[in-house]
Structures are given as C-alpha cells and as structure tokens.
Amino acid sequence: MLSTTIIIVSTLICISLIMNLLRLLRGPDLPDRILALDTLYINSIGLILLFGLYKGSALYFESALLIAMLGFVSTAAICKYLLRGDIIE
C-alpha cells in the first residue's frame, strides 16, 4: 500500500512541477518567474523525499536540506538584484 501511495503522490508532484514550468515560461513579469523557480525547488525537495522513502534510505535528506538552503539563498540573491541592481553593495 505504501509504495502505491508513494507513486501516486509522486505523480501529483510531477503534475505540479509541470504547472510551475508553464508559469515559468509564460510569466508576464520577472517576479512571476522568480516565484515559479522558488516553487520548483520546493517541489523538488518533496520529490527527493519521496524517492528516499521509496528506497527506504535516510541518505537523501542531506540533499533535500542542501537544496532548501541553496534555494533560499538564490531566491534572496535574485530578489536583491532586482531591487537594488546589485547583489553585494
């Protein structure tokens, strides 16, 4: 039952990744694209967690934690660049 649920939830997350990709391609303004990228990395954390559950190994949480940290830093850097025209002043 658990493996079936994991496959179903992975399908749901893949559909939402496709929706984010559509918004990333379509997005009329730059902040829309940043928001789509932000949501993309958060959803990919969920996908990696599900893969770790499927394999039954706790090794994949390290990569999820790394993606969470680097994703936040990159979002903050892009927003800062849009706001001020510079990243480190």
């Binding site: 997350i13 984010n20 559509l22 959803n43 969920g46």
Partner: peptide
C-alpha cells in the same frame, strides 16, 4: 503515513494550481 503523504501531495498540487491560475502576481 499514507494519509499524511496524500495530504501533502494534494496541498502541493493545490499550490501549483493557484500559481498557474490566479489573476495577478
């Protein structure tokens, strides 16, 4: 566990659907 996973997947889907369909930024 399955209930938690399904709830999580549905909320993630809902968030992306909102990102795609809501009117402005």
């Amino acid at each position: 566990i399955c209930a938690f996973l399904l709830m999580g997947g549905l909320f993630v889907l809902l968030g992306s659907f909102g990102l795609l369909r809501l009117p402005d930024f």
